[in-house]
């Protein structure tokens, strides 16, 4: 999902810096709802520009929203260490962007996603699950915004199978405009193929 490109649109960069800054404060204020709002905000940019950095940051914010929403996680012995590490990484990402050090930003993003490997016990399992779910959830938003299924799966580094299963359970098929071609016409065409 995160890959080295070392170039970022100025508008995207300014937005990500703001998101990281507000995300940092939201964690300090224990504001899980704000983290979700920041994620939604970023996915909008990701849809219009298919920008991998925005996609990564949207997934990070959504994962953090999910993690900070579960009060029970705080009882795990490694939780505080995990939070400190996350705050450090968000700060590092922001500083890297401000100083235009894209390689360093990219490394911090990678480090976030590999953070799970360094967490011990049950928390490791939960964090992994949350990050995987965040990728699929954000993917469904990209698809809803008009990016094709395969392109979305590719951008997020998830399998199209997982994405389809998630999309199927949303109301996207009902909400969006019906196609001109009616069922009657399509069915009649398909019958014609098998005579």
């Amino acid at each position: 999902m995160y890959f080295i490109r070392y170039f970022m649109d100025k508008e995207v960069r300014d937005n990500i810096i703001r998101i990281l800054d507000e995300g940092y404060k939201a964690i300090q204020d224990d504001d899980a709802l704000k983290l979700r709002m920041l994620s939604d905000n970023t996915i909008h940019d990701a849809s219009t520009k298919q920008d991998n950095y925005s996609i990564s940051v949207a997934v990070i914010m959504f994962s953090l929203h999910k993690l900070f929403s579960r009060i029970s996680f705080r009882t795990y012995p490694n939780w505080h260490m995990f939070v400190e590490k996350v705050l450090g990484l968000l700060k590092a990402m922001k500083i890297s962007l401000e100083q235009d050090r894209m390689k360093s930003f990219d490394l911090s993003v990678k480090e976030f996603f590999s953070l799970v490997d360094r967490v011990a016990g049950k928390l490791k399992f939960y964090i992994k699950e949350v990050i995987d779910t965040a990728k699929i959830s954000k993917g469904s938003r990209l698809y809803e915004h008009g990016v094709s299924l395969s392109k979305t799966a590719d951008l997020l580094g998830v399998s199209a199978y997982e994405l389809m299963s998630y999309i199927g359970k949303t109301g996207i098929a009902d909400v969006d405009a019906p196609l001109k071609n009616t069922v009657r016409k399509r069915l009649s065409f398909t019958r014609g193929l098998f005579v």
Partner: peptide, 10 residues
């Protein structure tokens, strides 16, 4: 900026 909506497979 062109919107990359479709994938190479499609």
């Amino acid at each position: 900026r062109p919107m990359q909506l479709l994938h190479s497979g499609e």
